[in-house]
Design a binder for these strands. Structure first.
Lengths: 138, 138
DNA sequence: GCGCAAGTGTTATACTATAACAATTTGATT
DNA sequence: AATCAAATTGTTATAGTATAACACTTGCGC
């Protein structure tokens, strides 16, 4: 019996992580697809989604639920629950780990018998840079 | 000058809210569409999405971002930020208002200059009822 | 070699959402 | 009442997101 936990990641996986790490905003599955197709014209959506699924399971990639898009994990703890800040102006995403907030949310659910297994915490708004430049750019 | 803030809601809007209130889980736009088409065969997706947009703006309906689905607002304050608990087993959604959690998240973003305008907080997991019945149903 | 499990390729399709423009309704004003 | 402007709804078409299903290949153990 041998487990399939984490064989070496293939070329496709590595290329996708590289693209997501370079990007300054989350990328959609089809943006990744279009870029990869430059090198490999025959690649198709299921390959992308399968790779994303595995990268997410391994903690290398996060899915931003409110955008149907994906971003590279930038926190040290690849499995900690993250709070994302998403600038709706420039698209930049910040990744924050705050165990206190997560614990408080967990208890909020637990008060009604609920067990939180996958918290989704995404704050849409405006980042500092965009807020500054919004004020009368002369 | 006359504002267009909130005329009476039309038949479509009322029917949609009624369906969402009756449902024990969030409904997708196309589920709403299919149901409404029983009475009005000619109704089409844009009508549904336009109605949803307006109902959400008025606070009668919430969009569950992580499900691409919609649920009736069940909290008193129709404009307060809600925390949703979503049972991945039975689909039931709980709506909770906890200003302390929201304020803490707001500050978490503010620490890096971020202004949170639309928090998305959705906890996926297992509700008390499902957790109980999971334990060896004999 | 053979069989099995996992992974990938390929085709097709399902599901979610909006663009664009036509037709109609509504209420304000004449 | 007639008319006009604004808003909404109807209609067609299409864009964008994701997965089902099955064929093919690969790596490993016997």
């Amino acid at each position: 019996m041998w487990s399939r936990q984490s064989k070496d990641l293939g070329e496709t996986h590595l290329a996708m992580v590289a693209l997501l790490r370079q990007a300054t905003r989350p990328l959609t599955a089809y943006e990744l697809l279009a870029t990869l197709q430059a090198d490999r014209p025959r690649i198709a959506p299921p390959t992308i989604y399968r790779a994303l699924k595995r990268l997410i399971a391994l903690g290398f990639v996060h899915r931003i639920e409110s955008m149907n898009a994906y971003t590279a994990c930038r926190s040290d703890g690849h499995s900690a629950t993250a709070v994302f800040t998403i600038c709706d102006n420039c698209g930049a995403v910040g990744e924050h780990v705050d165990e206190r907030v997560v614990e408080r949310l967990r208890r909020l659910g637990a008060a009604t018998g609920f067990t939180a297994e996958r918290p989704v915490i995404e704050l849409h708004g405006t980042c500092g840079g965009c807020r500054d430049s919004e004020r009368l750019p002369a």
